[in-house]
Simulated scan of single mutants.
Amino acid sequence: MRPSDIDGETTLLMRRPAALQPKRPSPARRIWRQIIGGFWSFIDSFRDPRLDDYLPPVPDRPAREDTLVCEGGIPQAERGERLLLEVVRVSPEYLRGVAALVEYAEHWHERGPIAVEDGLVHLALSRIRPDQHGEIPISWLERKLEGVPSYVVTRALRRLAQDGAIEVLPAREGDVGARLYEELRGYLGRVKLRRPL
């Protein structure tokens, strides 16, 4: 401590002690740690795999602002974490369905974002029971895909129609919600599934 005189007043100033540097372990201690770590890695290699070996790393807690820019207000990692928990809760028949769907989803992801969009919309259409006309109003599809932007749905519908997987039909009286517009046919508001997924 040393006194300091500022404007006629005496103030005591304290010096902060220098930060203590952590002591570096000796070379022998470092080698010993590597040997022990290698031994436990060797032992660990003989154990049966755990579920955790196949799962992605536990995500960090997102910053508050991150949640505002993600689809549906939920960060991608958090959606994945919720999905893992939901898979455990579903019935065995849905569990078998999820196992089969994983192969399709991996294939779509390998082909890129357009294939993922088309696969998602095609799957959703395949999981909606048509009305008495054998058609699915686009508003039903958008309700099923809540949180997916409508322009993504529209683009995928156009590509699926070009591919022959679906037929996009004019809206019927009483249909509400988003519709596609074509120069020659006018407003289109319904879908008929031609080729189930």
Rank of each mutant, 00 (worst) to 15 (best):
R82E: 02
D66K: 15
A115M: 10
W32A: 12
G73H: 03
E146F: 04
I114A: 11
R179Y: 07
E142K: 14
V90Q: 14
G8E: 02
L95F: 06
R96H: 10
S45W: 13
E173P: 02
V90S: 08
D66N: 13
H122I: 01
R47I: 02
T11C: 13
E103N: 08
P62V: 01
M14H: 05
E81A: 12
P57S: 09
R143T: 02
V191S: 03
E103G: 06
P22Q: 02
V121M: 04
D118V: 04
H109N: 06
A156T: 00
R179E: 13
D5V: 12
E71T: 11
L193Y: 04
Q76M: 15
C70E: 07
D53Q: 09
P130I: 03
F42W: 12
A100W: 05
W108E: 06
G186D: 08
V176Y: 09
L51C: 13
R15S: 04
V148I: 14
E182R: 01
D44G: 05
H133C: 10
R29W: 05
P113C: 07
P92C: 08
F46V: 10
A115Q: 11
P17F: 00
A77K: 14
L83S: 11
A124H: 07
L145V: 03
G164D: 04
G80A: 11
R29N: 13
Q132E: 15
H122N: 01
R47D: 06
S4W: 05
P25V: 12
R2L: 00
V98D: 15
I136D: 03
S41I: 09
Y151R: 12
A18F: 01
D5W: 10
W32T: 10
L13F: 03
L12V: 14
D60S: 09
P17S: 07
R111D: 07
Q162L: 13
G177D: 13
I74N: 05
P137A: 15
R24Y: 00
G38N: 00
A28D: 06
I128M: 10
Q76C: 13
R129I: 05
D44W: 06
E167D: 07
L51H: 08
P113V: 08
G177R: 12
R195D: 02
R159M: 08
A171V: 06
S41C: 13
F46I: 08
P59H: 12
I43N: 05
V153T: 03
R61K: 07
R29A: 14
P170H: 14
L197C: 02
D44H: 08
R111V: 06
R155A: 00
L184Q: 13
R155V: 00
E78C: 09
R47Y: 05
R61P: 02
H109V: 06
A161L: 10
Y94N: 11
T67D: 01
H107I: 06
E182L: 01
R82W: 03
A99E: 02
